[in-house]
């Protein structure tokens, strides 16, 4: 798989008055296309800072960050803005939708920024609202949506600009467990169907479990890292002790899971509505 994000010896230090607060300390990272990577770690471990630097929202003190082969640290502010618009989608912890726009307008806005006409932008917005299963809520303003619905709009907005990477900063932190799981399921589904790379910072165990790659940060350094083949969306529900079952039941269980997995991978309209 091709590398799309590469950081080399990345350092970042915040200053509060004369007191230094090191945030990143020599981060070397390589994210491949199509990965569902999760940055895990305690508060203050540097997850959000790393995500912000990769997303060209913040600068680093030293080191390099290459996204699609371009060193974003050498770009001007406006170049970074254009780079973000065309290559990166953002999902924030607090959803961060534009309050004065409806859900549909929030999504269409990024398309308009890309130079698409209003009609085309609204069409794209409708498509993504369908994808995140809240098409019927497109006319509502953010304050008329639940947290989970707002986060779905935020994901649709992030995807509407057709980015190669989605950076999500604690996307489930403000959601209840079930809504959070549904959201993870949605992101995994999009990752597998569309091949969009996800880099998520989170300390939610469900998110960590869904990761195809988990990168643990502590005190601004990568302390642990593992990767697997991409998990199926159902993996987050794999709380059943299969190994304790008799052989016959185990085969039956596996067949059922496989059928369910296929439905989720490519759900019918009926099933989608039901889910």
């Amino acid at each position: 798989m091709t590398s799309i994000i590469k950081t080399h010896d990345l350092h970042k230090c915040y200053w509060v008055g004369t007191m230094p607060h090191p945030a990143l300390h020599g981060i070397n990272l390589d994210i491949k296309q199509g990965e569902f990577a999760v940055l895990a770690g305690r508060s203050g471990s540097g997850k959000s800072t790393l995500l912000n630097i990769i997303g060209a929202l913040e600068s680093a003190d030293s080191g390099s960050v290459e996204v699609f082969g371009q060193n974003i640290l050498e770009m001007t502010q406006d170049q970074r803005t254009r780079f973000r618009l065309h290559n990166i989608g953002f999902v924030f912890q607090a959803y961060n939708l534009i309050r004065v726009f409806s859900a549909r307008e929030n999504i269409a806005y990024v398309c308009q920024l890309q130079g698409k006409s209003k009609e085309e932008s609204l069409e794209i917005a409708n498509h993504w609202l369908r994808e995140v299963e809240i098409e019927h809520l497109g006319y509502r303003r953010p304050d008329q949506l639940s947290g989970g619905q707002q986060q779905r709009v935020a994901i649709a907005r992030a995807l509407a600009s057709d980015p190669k990477i989605i950076l999500a900063d604690e996307p489930t932190a403000n959601l209840d467990t079930q809504t959070g799981r549904n959201l993870i399921h949605l992101m995994q589904d999009l990752n597998q169907r569309l091949g969009t790379t996800f880099l998520i910072s989170s300390h939610d165990p469900d998110v960590k479990e869904a990761a195809s790659r988990l990168i643990k940060l502590a005190d601004g350094q990568i302390v642990d890292e593992w990767s697997t083949i991409p998990k199926t969306p159902t993996s987050i529900y794999s709380d059943c002790p299969v190994q304790n079952m008799p052989f016959g039941e185990r085969v039956q269980f596996m067949i059922k899971r496989l059928i369910r997995w296929r439905r989720i991978r490519k759900p019918s309209k009926k099933n989608r509505r039901r889910s």
């Binding site: 997303g55 929202l57 502010q77 406006d78 803005t81 254009r82 973000r84 618009l85 065309h86 953002f90 924030f92 961060n96 939708l97 534009i98 309050r99 806005y109 990024v110 920024l113 890309q114 907005r157 600009s161």
Partner: peptide, 16 residues
């Protein structure tokens, strides 16, 4: 302040 930050983050230039 925050909303403006988001608007810039998703691709609005400072001139805009």
């Amino acid at each position: 302040h925050k909303e403006l930050g988001v608007i810039v983050a998703i691709g609005t230039t400072r001139f805009q």
